[in-house]
Design a protein around this nucleic acid. Sequence first.
DNA 1: CGGCACTCAGTTTTT
DNA 2: CTGAGTGCCG
Length: 756
Amino acid sequence: MNELLSQLNDQQRAAVEYIDGPMVVFAGAGTGKTRVITYRIAYLLNLGVNPYNILAVTFTNKAAQEMKDRLVKLFHQKAENVWVSTFHSLCAKILYTEAKNFGLKKNFVIYDENDSIKLIKECMKEVSIQPTNFSVYDIYELICRAKDNLIDPESYKINAVVSHQYHREIIAEIYSRYQKKLVQNNAFDFNDLIMKTVELFKNEKFVEIKNKYAQRFKYIHVDEYQDVNYSQVVLLKILSSIHHNVCVVGDDDQTIYSWRGSNVNYLLNFKKDFSTKDVEVKEFKITQNYRSKKTILDVSNMLINHNKYRVEKNLFSNIEGEFKNDIKIKQCEHEYDEAEFVAKEILKLQQTEKFCNSAVAVLYRTNAQSRVFEEVFSEYKIPYKIVGSVAFYDRKEIKDIIAYLRVLVNPEDSVSLKRIINIPSRGIGETTILYLETLAKENKTSLWEQIVKIDNTELSLKVKNSVWKFLSLYDLLKKYKDTMYPSEFIKFLIEKINYIEMIEENNRFENKTERMSNIEQLVDIAKNFEVQNNISTIEEFLNSISLFTTADTEEKIEFKNQNQKLKEVVLMTLHSAKGLEFDVVFIVGLVEGVLPIWWVTGTDVGYKNFNIPYDEKNMFYELNYVNIEEERRLCYVGITRTKKLLYLTYYLKRRLWGEEKHCLPSRFLEEILDGYKESSATHTDIISDVQEVEKIDYLTTGEFVVHDKFGVGKVVDIVREPPYDKIVVLFQNGQRKKLSFQHAKLKKLKGYNINQ
DNA sequence: CGGCACTCAGTTTTT
DNA sequence: CTGAGTGCCG
Ligand SMILES: Nc1ncnc2c1ncn2[C@@H]1O[C@H](COP(=O)(O)OP(=O)(O)OP(=O)(O)O)[C@@H](O)[C@H]1O
């Protein structure tokens, strides 16, 4: 026990030892917030608390697994029984376990974004008035945000009506239909998991079930509390309604998911929200950063200090460093040069004694950026691991197999049924399905019912024959479904549906092996689940796999005949890097338009959706609201992942849609460089062995520019036309031109600035 | 019904 | 430029 506490500083220990009553640890990056949660749980276990009574909520499944592993090491095997999971997994498990009590069918499926979008498309076809200016994805987002805020279709409609928002009424109609369809399909989407759980817990009828959980969770912990949304807070309140023992940790500077409905105010208002009549929330702060060198912490501060809406923290680090060794800024000509620079630096580092075994990460704003790095790393034979990117489960083969499994578990799942009914081709095409769907609607039954009752239809014998064949295959598979482990069953399934033959026919010449290997990987994943998570049924496997996505999945690329086994470089988005740490970090693509992303360049805070007419923008703030500060935080999160060595790189040109585009260095770089000027460090400290950063200021209206051809002109307007801003310039010769600043024919005239 | 060719939209981040 | 999605034709 003492050994446990000795691994903490005074501030951390105080938080760990405070175990009666709600508490919040509000502290900056790298101060050991996650460590506090982990050690607090270990501490509780040591005090003899039953692991069964402890809950810990993490942001990703991977983080959950890591915390579990850590707990087992700190305590012992019994720690396995601590419930550590994400909000989504937690709810999925509750719904699954309590299905019967809640009056739900246990064989529900969890729809991912793609499934949901298919369903929404169907709904949109059904409504007479089309919501112009909205993509299916926009609607999906709107529905997600509604669910994050526990707004059901009825309330959504009422809100729309009373606020005279006609467009929202259409959305409400689609939302309502979508929700009905989900029920018909016996499916939940991601946000339903939480919304439904809350809904059921709130229902008087189920008060006993609610109390069972509230009674059980004597100690609740939540990591990354700055990124929770309303529904999660409500759930937390319910779960803590008996013991009021909630311990949350968070850092307002690391809020990077507000686009997903999270709100930092829940962290800032935790005290108000969770204090009770008897106990007030106890607040803790930690000020020592254990992760990063002083220098890196300094740089992170230079950046984040530019955010207006934040709570000042006085972080310090005791790890000495030297600017010129620890932070490198590099300008590259082209995106490809940047990747090459990174590759060469990594190879160089691996030659050094200091960094040969280091954890190295390349962090970027968008998944698309990984591509260049993948190419170049392959060329340089640098092994890498890519987190996220094209989700494994987005691959055709995987989707097919999963869809088969889903239909076997839950034939009412029409999205999956429609996917697989003709894979491989068995002569049941679109027209047949359309016919059966109409029939289903008329008879108020499901597609599946109609398929089963195919005899009573007027379809041709040929089609009927195909359906009969399909049904007998279905019966066969169903018969064996529960006799094997998921991994075995997948193999069995593939064989029975002749899937391999289909792949061979469809891909006679190319990527056959890749497709085969995907299937093999799925079998491996299933096996892993069986061993690691103690999963033995298809149902459990499906539930886990639906929630185990992007940030949890990684793809490893190794290279043979490697003289020594190099540690693989990790490639991922800044979002996925949350909570992690690396010795060496490359933040790449630091250009305006990428980081910060293009639609926030120009307005600091504003609305992004260009399709929606101006006067409607305010109405859909949840879709359009953007904020430069969140981009800055993203960059900040990247920097603070770094322990020892940080590279910030950018380029002047990149290829976009087959065209070369000019880029400007990110304002974040400039902010950091400005910070340098003010600090004791000199300019040359930071960019010792790299090129001088080209200083380019940002144009605002009223400023003057000079153009190669048109001469001097005044900027009269800035037009935000994706993907780049354009400026409207009134030249001295009277010509008015709309120009892209990207085309370097334009230079700013400094002395001319008459604005202020 | 299925396969091929053409169009066009698109790069934000994820449970 | 790519990939998904649609439409047309055999
Ligand atoms: N008291 C301590 N002694 C030694 N190392 C510590 C101590 N506290 C934290 N650390 C180390 O500091 C690093 C950061 O800890 P942790 O990930 O828990 O911080 P965090 O506050 O959750 O970070 P972030 O919010 O940036 O993700 C870890 O490597 C951890 O092991």
